[in-house]
């Protein structure tokens, strides 16, 4: 990272500037998926321990977000989407973000171990390491497969939630991981299709920059098709059921249709309607993930009411 490209702090940072370092929007997804992982597990934690588990998983995700912003400050300042973040905007010094990230990483891992168990804490520590070091420092700037492998960091929270409750990894936890892991590439590549200038300006080797948009469109379709079996398989595990299978079938069908529409388009068509299909696919991908995990939660509630299969 080159500090020269980051503006010097000119204003006194408020509390909100530090909260922004933790990427609250990403954190909300982490909280939701970790909560579902915890709630659908066959073993239930006591309320304060469960609340602590979610809180410290979210805090660990926030810590890795702060470390990511510290490392990426030099490219964040070049991208329209990220140039108003606390560090590139000059409200927080990079060193402050590093300190906050390291401190919160330690607190979240230790507290998760005390509140739940060592396996969950170990997984959280690995997730922070994976996102901050493997993804941010290594993959992001060196390979167009950055988000494919880096997506693992975002896929761990439901697994950590499950392990916090049960103490071990199971098939269900692995499939929840796989669902997010396989969902990440089409989600981000759809974003990259209509945000190409940003990544190109920053020199980040996104697939759209290195292999072109035609290949990216093909990859979106391939990964969407590969995602389907993982999403559907969850329906036949102990956390699935008829509600989940019905919801997943409809969502996956629509997701594949969206990916096929993206694949069939070329840049002339996309420019003509200002990437309407790509933007719609990106928005639907958020609904897709939220609805899958909501369906798992509904199944858990039904089971607790005696309607389980």
């Amino acid at each position: 990272m080159t500090d020269t490209q980051v503006q010097a702090t000119t204003v006194e940072p408020g509390f909100g500037d530090f909260v922004q370092l933790l990427k609250p929007r990403v954190m909300s997804l982490v909280v939701f998926t970790a909560l579902v992982g915890l709630m659908v597990a066959p073993v239930h934690l006591y309320p304060v321990a469960a609340f602590s588990a979610i809180l410290f998983i979210a805090l660990g995700a926030g810590a890795s977000g702060a470390l990511n912003m510290w490392w990426d400050a030099d490219i964040d300042v070049l991208m329209r989407r990220t140039k108003n973040r606390s560090i590139p905007a000059g409200r927080i010094q990079p060193g402050e973000a590093l300190g906050l990230g390291v401190a919160l990483s330690g607190i979240s891992v230790v507290m998760l171990a005390l509140a739940t168990n060592l396996v969950a804490a170990g997984l959280l520590a690995f997730t922070i390491f994976f996102y901050a070091v493997v993804y941010s420092m290594w993959l992001k700037r060196s390979t167009p497969q950055n988000i494919v492998i880096g997506g693992a960091a975002g896929a761990f929270p439901p697994m950590i939630g499950w392990v916090a409750a049960t103490g071990s990894v199971s098939l269900e936890a692995c499939l929840m991981f796989a669902l997010i892991f396989m969902w990440t590439p089409p989600h981000f590549w759809a974003l990259a299709l209509f945000m190409k200038e940003d990544y190109s300006n920053a020199g980040v080797p996104m697939l759209t920059v290195t292999h072109g948009r035609r290949t990216t469109r093909a990859y979106i379709l391939i990964y969407t098709v590969l995602l389907v079996p993982f999403a559907m398989a969850l329906g036949w595990t102990t956390i699935g059921g008829p509600v989940y299978i019905a919801v997943a079938a409809a969502l996956n069908l629509w997701f594949v249709v969206g990916a096929v529409r993206i694949y069939r388009r070329d840049e002339v068509q996309a420019e003509a309607d200002k990437y309407a299909v790509e933007k719609a696919f990106f928005r639907f991908s958020l609904v897709y993930l939220f609805a899958h995990f909501s369906a798992m939660l509904v199944e858990a509630v039904l089971r607790s009411m005696g309607y389980g299969v």
Binding site: V11, E12, P13, G14, G16, F18, V19
Partner: peptide, 11 residues
């Protein structure tokens, strides 16, 4: 500056 500092301290 005082308002921002207060928000940080309170937080």
């Amino acid at each position: 500056i005082h308002r921002r500092r207060f928000s940080r301290n309170l937080g």
